[in-house]
Design a protein around this nucleic acid. Sequence first.
DNA 1: ACCGTATTCAGCGCG
DNA 2: TGAATACGGT
Length: 764
Amino acid sequence: MNILEELNNEQRAAVEHIEGPVMVLAGAGSGKTRVLTYKVAHLINLGVDPFSILALTFTNKAAREMKKRIITLVDNHDARNVWMGTFHSIFARILRIEAHRLGFPSHFTIYDTDDSRNLMKSVITEQELDTKIYTPAYVLNRISQAKINLVTPTVYNSDPQLLLQDKIAGRPKTGHLYSLYQNRLIKASAMDFDDLLLNMHRLLEEYPDMLYKYQQKFLFILVDEYQDTNYVQYAILKKLAANNENICVVGDDAQSIYAFRGATIQNILNFKSDYLDAFTYKLEQNYRSTKTIVKAANGVIVNNKDQIFKEIWTNNEEGHLIGLLKATTDSEEGALVANAIFENKMNHQLRNDAFTILYRTNAQSRAFEESLRKLNIPYRIYGGLSFYKRKEIKDMLAYYRLVINNRDEEALLRIINYPARGIGKTSCERLALEADRSKTSICEVIERMPDRLFDIPMPTQKKMNDFMVMIKSFSIQLKTRNAYELAREIASAAGILKELHEDKSPEGISRFENIEELLNAIHDFSEQQERLSLTAENLENVPRTLDEFMQEVALLTDADTPDSEDPDHVSLMTIHAAKGLEFPYVYIVGMEENLFPSIQSLNSRADLEEERRLFYVALTRAMKKVTLSYAENRYRWGTLTISEPSRFIDEIDFAAFDIPKKVSFIPEENRFMTSGSDMQGTRDQRHPFRKNFKRILPSSGDDLPAPGDDTDLIQVGMNVEHARFGTGKVISMEGTGPNKKATIYFQNIGQKQLLLKFAKLRIR
DNA sequence: ACCGTATTCAGCGCG
DNA sequence: TGAATACGGT
């Protein structure tokens, strides 16, 4: 059977167009992933060597599922040799092969965000800078932005504009911290996530033979979720594809929801000018949702200015109207939604996994959990602490990391005194200081220890040395021993098994079980015969080793831990986490101004438009029915706040709503002023339920701001003007009501903290 | 080294 | 509010 016959005309055209640059603009639910998988399958069917196909996805999970699908499609196991994975995992594989070019050992460690944060924290404290001003998060964010834009420390520190920005932000040392941070990474033979991209780019940029090699290798390049790629990813693709330009990108600008961490929609918008003979296909038929949902989603997204025009349509039934639930409080919202799910489930004989609750922020999950539990409805929260982020697992992995890479400082500092061996904090700090001074790694400092006199007590030096000897004794066994045996031996030699076994508290027992589970995973791994296609050439009977395991683990996350529980549960997750998924019944909750759209997004149109795209993504997850809910009052950060319904509700045609009787105590004359008429009604007229939310300002008595200033509109990040101090930028705000204070950086006089009720600030 | 209390700070999060 | 960290006393 010809697999192409399973596609519609546009999909098929995109799949069969195999040469030259192709962009597939695929609306939500239009079979985007389908095009990608069928295209790879088609290529293989045409006789293309799977080893020469590079397919990049957004998550490991997507890669795994796609690969599985392709193998069944082509019914040929060779399909597993396609280079399919995330940008990070594919580039990590290549970088391990070519590491020596860039001065790294092939066993370099990949630092996760915790490692990066800890390292940055030490760098900042060692520089004796104020960690309140130089928060690791801020500095790392700056560095990440720099790396994404190919800005190395050297470039950064000679770029007047960047330096000026840091100066204005009151953090002139940021560039210096970048250099120090990067040096520490190199010293530890480590790369952070952004380095995997940046170094891949360097490899292709600085070594023409490498560029040639990988251009020759990857004859066909496919990219999923192109709207969520950033500049360095774009630049790498541009280089790899430069030879024959057989590059096919698939994406939907309307679903770009990761601009906040550097993804840029420009990659899609510029595709045609980057590749002059580019061919564009638009997939506009939605196979997922009802007409009602598609219409609602179109009505929302049309409010964005930055977009490529698409008209999504569907042949599906009209379907249910959109539900709208109004609650008095956040906990009532939880109860309303849980009850609605319960009723729906009972009335229509549905399974729990037909339902999902989507929210803007993780903090909202609690009310829904409680209500679902009361009704005995099984649920699962996605995106919580993943297995590999748990403390005990990270501790154990730190041992393995250190055995593999003795210079891995973050791993060393994490475990040198866990379990407790009497090596205290001060001694560790001195150790780190000495490593920094002598420009070597901590591990080398320890090894030279007895010969030198540090201000570390002799017994402690001895203990440090014993520790390092133990680690190294395992290092030499890495290549010869089976992953599982070695892993278990390290676990017991380190004392972790004993430590956790003795802890009989419920948490201790669960930690012990988690370690066992980790060891089981390693056991399964070492039993598998199949290796990465990368090492397929040396198929001898070498056991699978611990460092191979760790290479796979470094880039795994949440979604990669399969859940063993009953799969029939209601899913709770953030909208971001729901990207790419679909559910019959979707509840989008917390539809309130300042929550969704988020208060932080109200400063710029770009941010607001990203929120709107997020809402678009949420709506288009649904197959059968969407229900929106909001609460009039909500506890946020410990205080009760009054909310009004989200502007996004207004953007859906009022006629699409199924307004429950109990909410519509609406004056008759407003009843029929729906958007069905051409009348340019106010928001209140179009959406009568809003009437109940006549803004009630908290009474602030005498403290009401004088008319003519902008006091209660001021937000972090705004430029403001003060009668005496001139113009400045709001850095942070604290307090509530009349006691609201803002920290403002004034151009002329520097930082000041002002009580808003007195400051009479104007927004500029 | 360890524990209880004070303080701070709250967006979304791939790899 | 509550989790996560910092601090300060034993």
